[in-house]
């Protein structure tokens, strides 16, 4: 009888996981993934990629698409350069943030701004493979034939206000993150897709200058 209940429950869980993410099934043992993802991340000194950002506004049935270039350099430096349909530059290096838009340059500490602190932490965790160690999220793992999907559900009050969940999708063959989906409690979402990633190319420190 007990075995029957467990079997039925397992079937329900499997069906639920399939329904939530079509083509994906739940991964119970995440150790193998964590190990391989962390190994790849440890070997990643720099990452350069094009990106597309798609903001979907559910209530307004609107999409805002922007494009640009993404750069990462160990240990904690990120540069996001929006090039279309507007120009905007955001550099986060450790705790320092540098912003440049059409009119203005702005420097601040990531510590003083919860928003940049969150962006910084999420990006770094996704690129460096430390997302499973982030106590701010409950992490569930799903897999399809060629990718992994890590579902991050925020547990802190501040993050819950901003996101209902964040999905990080990585390619199995090279463990590179190809998509980050940030879902908001309102039903809106922002999807960042990384295109043509280049690993360990020479990236000048000047790209990450925040002064």
């Amino acid at each position: 009888m007990r075995r029957l209940v467990i079997t039925i429950l397992s079937c329900f869980l499997f069906i639920w996981a399939q329904a939530q993410y079509p083509g994906y099934k739940s991964v119970a043992n995440t150790d193998a993934f964590k190990k391989s993802f962390t190994q790849t991340s440890q070997k990643t000194n720099t990452l350069k990629s094009d990106f597309t950002q798609e903001k979907t506004l559910s209530m307004l049935a609107e999409k805002i698409v922007s494009k640009g270039k993404f750069y990462f350099k160990k240990e904690n430096a990120i540069r996001m350069e929006y090039t279309s349909p507007f120009q905007y530059l955001m550099v986060i290096n450790g705790n320092n943030v540098y912003i440049k838009d059409n009119q203005k340059e702005n420097k601040m500490s990531a510590k003083s701004n919860k928003l940049f602190q969150s962006i910084n932490r999420i990006m770094m965790d996704c690129v460096k493979g430390t997302i499973f160690d982030n106590k701010d999220f409950l992490v569930k793992l799903f897999e399809s034939g060629d990718s992994y999907l890590a579902e991050l559900t925020p547990v802190t009050k501040d993050l819950k206000k901003m996101f209902s969940k964040i999905n990080m999708i990585s390619v199995k063959k090279d463990n590179l993150v190809k998509k980050i989906e940030m879902h908001e409690p309102s039903g809106d979402k922002t999807v960042l897709s990384f295109i043509n990633p280049e690993l360990n190319t020479n990236l000048a420190d000047a790209l990450f200058n925040t002064n």
Binding site: Q53, I64, I119, D188, T190
Partner: peptide, 12 residues
Amino acid sequence: VRLLFTNEAGFK
């Protein structure tokens, strides 16, 4: 009329 202001990275 709806009027929505986000930052460049999509945060409302």
